[in-house]
Design a protein around this nucleic acid. Structure first.
Length: 877
RNA sequence: GCCCGAGUGGCGAAAUAGGUAAACGCAGAGGACUUAAAAUCCUUAGCCGUCACUGGCGUGUGGGUUCGAUUCCCGCCUCGGGCACCA
């Protein structure tokens, strides 16, 4: 390949005096494009021979095409691009794709507001985001691009849905669901954050609706178990969040017989993690939503009171019920159950803190050993019975001020009295199982995934409902089910699909009779649960992915935000396991993402005036508001947002400094996983560094490429630093993923080259090697300027495709070392010695050192600690 | 409330197996170049003391382990994140 040298001229080895990123960057972007430099090489080469290079599949979390790129994207994609470019140079077959998460509510809102069709709005936004991504220098292989709102994409999603339905993994269930009235749709549990909608932050209410669910709980244990494979490769924080979200707890189910059985119900089953305390259970609490809540009191004089209480609790939304000041209340149903361990009658209460969708919606109350039950018992004067005694002073029920929840020995527990409570858990559970009263069980906090959405701009659920045959899938030949295009978008309420005059009219695939087409669409998280698979073969029509595509799996490196820890990342793991079980993916492929890097947020200072609220930076002068002169409040490091008026526009930044500077700053200012504090002076600093490097290279374009090895110590030193830098940067990029230190190392090398160039006259190959190494090592971070310099240094092939510098142990070896001499652990001197110097020799030198002598004279050396190559510590007394 | 993570110069940060604390960069100070400025280059730079140094102090805080602790252990404080009646 021979890029047109309109910027640097390789043959003449000259560079324009001044570096102009706005001219140079687009030039090399075009050259990479023309060379197809970023096309993912297939496993089998065109000549039929296998490509021996290891594959490397890297991707970032794809964006929702809002039409605007923000700094968070720039940070995310810079990190991904560095890794993609570095691994490419390291000799990997890199697949680095990009796509669009293009179904979703904003498109629909835009349709209502601006009267544009969601599709047109989305397609236009994608177009307007692609340019800026290219302008950043992202090395994506666009031949693998996908957009999830396209029928060629979502037809596979509809097939997955149908397969799930056939396997009982997709089902309909009437339940209390999270309803966001602003989005006019339901939400999955993980999409409710602090009682608010994850998308629009409005309060979520509960509604009784029948909806489509995915049985993700079926995979809960596997999702938990397979985290072992991810440990050390995913951030602990994310694994921990998933663990908490899944919330596995071991316990027992215990059945309590009703004292007065109903016609069809004779007992109430509870879930407990404390079967060891069952002898101390003195009442039963059930949820207001429990099917027996209203039945137990039927016909009793308490009926009206209980019904009123149940209705009151049922009407309260989740936010209310989770609030700090929510008062624990209950109502006695009038019914009793029998404690199977001791025959004691226990009153059954409705309690407003018992959750219907965890365990069985009923709990045995042991007030002596559970804080909630304790408070409840005190409030309603229910008996408290101690059945676990700690070591030391025994507990007396009437004197308790709080429940005792620690370990101890059982008392008042029949044959189990005297046992350690941990042993008793197992023993009592086994005993109850033997009696047919219960057994060991596991409960998860994770709930099934609610996937139906009452919206238009989503993937249609490919089902019809026949009055005769119930829900039936659309026959495969009729897929994909497309969205109707003749839609009028009106604000508020009903899904346009439900109100469309004809779209929902369909035929039952079994009897051919009229059937109602499902008007719900799928949750947007459905598309992102498998897009990484589709990236490998986005054009393949025969299924989700083809055989060649499979060779790229799994994703070796995924880069994104930790805000998806319990949503997207759990769903994707669920899908991978499911598809692997079905044989769509190899049976050994159980996890989608080998390594995960979660980048931190981008923050910036904000200013606020008492009168004019948040101010743009240019509205603040000398700490005062330019509008009214009042002192502006300086708020440190707030999340970048329009509200705070502290947003930095990526493209404005690129126009001012160039993409390389923007990338470099994002990578240099902080380690990737911590917050990035935006700071204009820091950006200037990065820009200046690139300028320094440019001028440095400019001075030495015509150095000899070959010749004598280092002939003096200055050259040997430079060579040593060069190779140490190769080692450091390689480790930082390929193992540690610490780009800030990689850049610092290259800066040090650049400073060393500069020092050498200023003091030495040798036009040596060593100098050339060091300069070329610096340019290559920086290439993944600042690809354009490095590509320019690389060609100016006389290379005709692309830096982006050049081979990563090879580290030489011999060249990096130190001849002399600085040994720190400590006396009693305090540094007193430094000695420069030959690398191979022995302890005895160093000790001798140390004792002769004036500074050391000052602290050792007249004292005896009791002990000497010698750390080879590092330090000598003399312990004196 | 419970569970994680983090606290290092004026600022962002570094220290990769317990071994020179502050690499690299920003801001600052001084100087060179310039009629001047910008840009650039050089020097300096934790705090205190000192003519000076090879002195003292110093990684949120109080203890501990160690010849030696930013690093390991225990208590406390502050900040950030996650979960929050999960029985």
């Amino acid at each position: 390949m021979n890029p047109s040298p309109s910027c640097s001229d390789a043959s003449k080895s000259t560079l324009p005096e001044k570096y102009d990123p706005l001219k140079v960057e687009p030039h090399w972007q075009a050259a990479w494009q023309a060379a197809g430099a970023f096309r993912a090489p297939p496993a089998v080469k065109p000549d039929g021979q296998p490509d021996p290079r290891p594959k490397f599949f890297i991707m970032e979390m794809f964006p929702y095409p809002s039409g605007r790129l923000h700094m968070g994207h720039v940070r995310n994609y810079s990190i991904g691009d560095v890794l993609a470019r570095a691994f490419r140079m390291k000799g990997h077959r890199v697949l680095y794709p990009m796509g669009w998460d293009s179904f979703g509510l904003p498109a629909e809102n835009a349709a209502i507001k601006a009267k544009v069709h969601p599709r047109d709005w989305t397609v236009k936004n994608i177009e307007s985001m692609k340019g800026p991504l290219g302008r950043l220098g992202q090395s994506y292989d666009w031949t693998h691009e996908l957009s999830t709102c396209e029928p060629e994409y979502f037809i596979h999603e509809q097939r997955i849905f149908i397969e799930m339905w056939k396997r009982g993994l997709a089902y309909r269930k009437g339940a209390l669901v999270n309803w966001c009235s602003s989005c006019a749709t339901v939400l999955a549990n993980e999409q409710v954050e602090d009682g608010l909608c994850w998308r629009c932050q409005s309060v979520v209410h509960q509604r009784e609706l029948t909806q489509w669910f995915f049985r993700i709980t079926e995979y809960a244990q596997q999702i938990l178990d397979d985290m072992e494979q991810l440990r050390g490769k995913w951030p602990d924080k994310v694994l921990h969040m998933q663990e908490n979200w899944i919330g596995r707890s071991e316990g027992a189910r215990i059945r309590f017989a009703l004292q007065t059985p109903l016609a069809d119900v004779t007992e109430i089953e509870v879930f407990t993690t404390r079967p060891d305390t069952v002898f101390g259970a003195t009442f039963l609490s059930i949820a207001a939503e429990h099917p027996l809540a209203l039945r137990l009191c039927a016909g009793l004089e308490r009926e009206a009171e209980v019904t009123a209480f149940v209705n009151k609790v049922r009407a309260e939304d989740k936010t209310r019920r989770g609030a700090d000041d929510y008062v624990k209340e209950g109502s006695f149903t009038g019914a009793y159950v029998i404690n199977p361990t001791n025959g004691r009658p226990m009153p059954v209460y409705i309690a407003n803190f018992v959750l219907m969708d965890y365990g069985t919606g009923a709990v045995m109350a042991v007030p002596a050993h559970d804080q909630r039950d304790f408070e409840f018992a005190r409030k309603y004067n229910l008996p408290i019975e101690v059945v676990i005694q700690p070591e030391g002073a025994p507990l007396v029920a009437s004197e308790l001020t709080a429940a005792y929840t620690e370990r101890g020995r059982l008392v008042n527990s029949g044959d189990f009295s005297g046992q350690d409570n941990e042993d008793a858990k197992k023993n009592i559970t086994a005993w109850l199982a033997e009696k047919g009263q219960g057994g060991q069980t596991v409960s998860f906090r994770l709930r099934d995934w609610l996937v139906s959405r009452q919206r238009y701009w989503g993937c249609p659920i490919p089902m019809v409902e026949c009055p005769e045959h119930g829900y039936q899938p659309i026959p495969d030949a009729e897929l994909p089910v497309l969205l109707p295009t003749d839609i009028e978008f009106v604000p508020g309420g009903q899904s346009p699909l439900a109100t469309h005059p004809t779209w929902k009219q369909a035929q039952c695939p079994i009897c051919g009779g009229p059937a109602r087409r499902e008007t719900d669409t799928m949750d947007g998280f459905m598309e992102s649960s498998w897009y990484f698979l589709r990236y490998t073969s986005p054009q393949y029509a025969g299924g989700i992915l083809d055989e060649a595509g499979k060779t790229f799996l799994p994703v070796d490196q995924y880069v994104g935000g930790s805000e998806h820890a319990t949503k997207h990342l759990i769903y994707s793991r669920f899908f991978t396991k499911m598809l692997s079980d079905w044989g769509v993916l190899p049976s050994t492929l159980r996890e989608p993402f080998v390594r995960l890097l979660t980048q931190g947020m981008v923050l910036k200072d904000a200013y606020r005036c008492a009168e004019h609220d948040y101010l743009y930076p240019e509205e603040v002068q000398d700490g005062s508001c330019v509008k009214c002169g009042q002192t502006a409040q300086h708020l440190r490091q707030m999340k970048m947002s329009k509200t705070f008026r502290n947003v930095v526009e990526p493209m404005a930044l690129v126009e001012k400094y160039g993409a390389d500077t923007a990338r470099l700053f994002c990578l240099f200012a902080a380690p990737p996983d911590s917050v990035l504090e935006w700071n204009e002076a820091g950006v200037e600093g990065c820009s200046r560094f690139l300028g320094r490097l440019y001028r440095l290279v400019q001075r030495f374009l015509a150095l000899p490429t070959e010749g004598t090895p280092p002939t003096d110590s200055a050259q040997a030193d430079l060579r040593r630093i060069t190779h140490k830098t190769i080692r450091r940067v390689s480790a930082d990029l390929f193992e540690r993923q610490q780009f800030n230190t990689a850049i610092a190392a290259i800066m040090e090398l650049s400073n060393a080259i500069s020092d050498f160039a200023n003091t030495q006259t040798a036009q040596s190959p060593v100098l050339r090697e060091s300069i070329e190494t610096a340019v290559q090592l920086l290439g993944p971070m600042a690809p354009h300027i490095c590509e320019e310099l690389w060609h100016a240094l006389g290379h005709s092939e692309l830096l982006a495709l050049s081979a990563w510098p090879v580290f030489s142990e011999a060249a990096a070896r130190d001849e002399q070392l600085t040994i720190v001499v400590q006396v009693n652990g305090k540094k007193r001197a430094e000695l420069v010695v030959a690398a191979e110097a022995e302890e005895a020799h160093i000790t001798q030198l140390a004792l002769a050192d004036a500074a050391v002598k000052q602290f050792t004279d007249g004292k005896t050396i009791k002990k000497a600690i010698f750390v080879k190559g590092r330090l000598l510590n003399l312990v004196v007394a």
